[in-house]
Structures are given as C-alpha cells and as structure tokens.
Amino acid sequence: MYSLFDGLARIKFPIDYPYSPPAFRFLTKMWHPNIYENGDVCISILHPPVDDPQSGELPSERWNPTQNVRTILLSVISLLNEPNTFSPANVDASVMYRKWRDSKGKDREYAEIIRKQVLATKADAERDGVKVPTTLAEYCVRTRAPPADEGSNLFYDDYYDDEDLEDEDEDDDGDCCYDDEDDSGTEES
C-alpha cells in the first residue's frame, strides 16, 4: 500500500481553541475512505465534545482540550494508513479500498489511484522546492529523552539534536522508527 500520502493541508483553529476542535482539511485532492470530496477529514478527535449517541463514537474518542497539533497529526497519519471503513466519508473510496485489501493487493484499482495522486503531489512539491521523503528512514524523525539537567527547561517532551542523529544514522542498521516489517501489502510506499 502507498502509505506516504503527500499533500497540502490546512488546520483552522476556532477562537475558543482548545475547548473546541480545529478543522483539518486537505487542500490536495485525496482519494481516501475517511476524507470528504472537499478535503475535510472525518476523524473522531476532531468532532466536538458533545454527547451524540447517533454517531457511534464514545465521548472519550472525541475532541478534548488535552489534544494538540501533534496528536491531531498523529491521528491523521494513522487514519491515512489504516482507514476506518465502518464510517466512511467517501463511500466509493471505502468500497474500493476494501476490495483492494480483501484481494491482498491483487485488485489494483485503489492502489493505482493513490499512486497517481502521490506522483502528482511529488511533482507539485518539486516545483515548490520541497523534498518529499521516499523511504521510511527519510520520513521518520528520531526522538529521545532529554538529559536530566536540561529536562526542566524544555516545554516539549521530545529532544531533537540533528548532529547526534547524523552520527547515529551511520552506526545504524537502518531501522529508525519501527522494528516490524511493512505489512501494507506491497513493497512500494
């Protein structure tokens, strides 16, 4: 499966953020079961924190003020890689995705649409001077805990040091983010 969706997106924050969720919309055309034709992403954590028994969502799955841009992006990335076909925003994409998944990649219609969209967005990125990651190693950023003496001065829980990462990459066996193998169904990403 083509797990690296490249595209432009916009996050729009309401005046009462963080008490209300932001809106997340892809500006790039996306063929995905959980993305509406206009680019809006259908994901539980971006739904207002109201009690809606008809939605099938637990209140704990909806927006709460502890969410932040990082948790939103992680949720969107997860959704892109593992569509929720039980609650599709794009029924046609959902049917096509399930057909592809159930055929174990033999039905190529869904994968071909995604491949064409990824290639188109890569061309857009190159025109804009943006390098699009093409491997898992390029796509991932390593994190580690800060040294004990600096921890109290940091606002975020991640400590990034590009120089140290470059040195570590030379000693690595290439696995930067995951120890498990790609289970997406194809060799391409």
Rank of each mutant, 00 (worst) to 15 (best):
Y2K: 06
S3N: 09
F5P: 02
F5S: 07
D6T: 01
G7N: 08
L8M: 11
K12H: 09
F13K: 03
I15R: 15
I15W: 12
D16I: 09
D16K: 10
D16T: 06
Y19T: 05
S20N: 06
A23Q: 12
A23I: 13
A23T: 11
A23R: 09
F24Y: 05
F24Q: 03
F26Y: 15
T28G: 05
T28R: 06
M30K: 02
W31F: 15
H32L: 08
I35K: 02
N38S: 11
V41F: 04
C42G: 07
I43W: 04
S44K: 08
S44V: 12
S44I: 10
P49L: 13
P49N: 15
D51G: 03
S55M: 10
G56V: 09
E57H: 09
E57N: 06
L58P: 00
P59Q: 13
N64C: 13
N64S: 15
N64Q: 11
T66N: 01
Q67S: 07
V69N: 00
V69D: 00
V69K: 02
T71D: 06
T71R: 07
I72M: 00
L73W: 08
L74N: 10
S75D: 05
V76R: 01
V76P: 03
E82T: 15
T85P: 08
T85F: 14
T85E: 14
F86L: 08
F86A: 12
S87D: 12
S87W: 05
S87F: 09
A89F: 07
N90T: 01
D92W: 07
S94E: 01
V95H: 07
Y97T: 00
Y97Q: 00
R98F: 02
W100L: 02
R101S: 07
K104D: 07
G105R: 02
G105T: 03
R108Q: 15
R108C: 10
A111P: 02
I114C: 11
I114T: 12
K116T: 14
Q117F: 02
Q117R: 09
V118P: 02
L119C: 06
A120E: 14
T121Q: 14
A123I: 13
A123Q: 13
D124I: 14
A125W: 03
A125G: 07
A125R: 05
E126H: 05
E126K: 14
K131E: 10
K131T: 10
V132A: 00
V132Q: 02
P133L: 01
P133C: 02
P133Q: 02
T135H: 02
T135C: 04
T135K: 04
L136I: 05
T143L: 00
T143P: 00
P146G: 05
P147W: 12
P147C: 00
D149H: 14
D149S: 08
G151R: 15
G151F: 13
G151M: 14
S152Q: 12
L154F: 08
L154T: 07
F155P: 06
Y160G: 04
D162H: 11
E166L: 12
E168I: 03
E168T: 00
D169T: 05
E170A: 11
D171E: 14
D172S: 15
D175R: 15
C176M: 04
C176S: 01
C177D: 01
D179Y: 04
D179Q: 06
D179M: 04
D180S: 09
D180Q: 05
E181L: 12
S184N: 10
G185P: 10
T186F: 15
E187L: 03
S189R: 03
S189I: 04
